[in-house]
Amino acid sequence: KLNEKEKELCQMVRLVPGAYLEYKSALLNECNKQGGLRLAQARALIKIDVNKTRKIYDFLIREGYI
Rank of each mutant, 00 (worst) to 15 (best):
K1Y: 10
K1T: 10
L2W: 05
L2I: 07
L2D: 02
N3R: 04
N3V: 05
N3Q: 09
N3E: 08
N3L: 04
N3F: 03
N3W: 00
E4S: 11
E4C: 05
E4A: 13
E4L: 10
K5F: 03
K5H: 09
K5E: 06
E6V: 08
K7T: 11
E8G: 04
E8H: 11
E8V: 08
E8S: 09
L9H: 03
L9N: 02
L9W: 01
L9M: 08
C10P: 00
C10T: 03
C10N: 12
C10M: 03
Q11P: 01
Q11G: 09
Q11I: 06
Q11R: 14
Q11K: 15
M12I: 11
M12V: 12
V13M: 15
V13A: 12
R14V: 02
R14W: 01
L15Q: 01
L15G: 01
L15C: 04
L15T: 04
L15W: 00
L15I: 13
V16P: 15
V16N: 15
V16T: 15
V16D: 15
V16R: 14
V16Q: 15
V16S: 15
V16F: 10
V16M: 12
P17M: 00
P17D: 03
P17G: 00
P17K: 04
G18S: 15
G18I: 08
A19V: 09
Y20Q: 04
Y20D: 08
L21V: 09
L21F: 04
L21D: 03
L21W: 08
L21A: 09
E22M: 09
Y23Q: 00
K24V: 01
K24Q: 01
K24Y: 00
K24M: 03
S25Y: 10
S25A: 14
S25R: 14
A26E: 08
A26H: 08
A26D: 02
A26T: 13
L27N: 00
L27Y: 00
L28K: 07
L28V: 15
L28S: 06
N29H: 12
N29R: 13
N29Y: 08
N29E: 12
N29T: 12
E30H: 09
E30L: 11
C31A: 14
C31M: 08
C31E: 06
C31K: 04
C31I: 07
C31V: 08
N32Q: 13
N32D: 13
N32C: 08
N32A: 14
N32S: 13
N32M: 13
N32F: 09
K33Y: 12
K33S: 07
K33A: 11
K33H: 12
Q34Y: 12
G35P: 06
G35D: 09
G36R: 06
G36T: 10
G36K: 09
L37W: 06
L37T: 04
R38M: 13
R38F: 08
R38N: 15
R38T: 15
L39H: 05
L39S: 06
A40F: 06
A40H: 10
A40P: 09
A40G: 11
Q41A: 10
Q41W: 02
Q41R: 12
Q41V: 05
A42K: 03
A42H: 03
A42S: 04
A42M: 09
R43W: 07
R43E: 15
R43F: 13
A44S: 13
A44T: 11
A44R: 12
L45D: 08
L45Y: 05
L45H: 05
L45N: 05
K47T: 08
I48D: 14
D49E: 10
D49A: 12
V50F: 10
T53K: 08
K55E: 12
I56E: 01
I56R: 03
I56C: 01
I56G: 01
I56V: 08
Y57A: 04
Y57H: 07
Y57P: 03
D58A: 05
D58M: 04
F59N: 00
F59K: 00
F59H: 04
F59V: 01
L60S: 02
L60P: 04
L60Q: 06
L60E: 00
I61F: 09
I61E: 11
I61K: 13
R62Q: 13
R62E: 13
R62F: 01
R62C: 05
R62V: 00
R62Y: 05
E63A: 04
E63K: 02
G64Y: 01
G64P: 05
G64Q: 06
Y65W: 12
Y65A: 13
Y65R: 06
I66S: 04
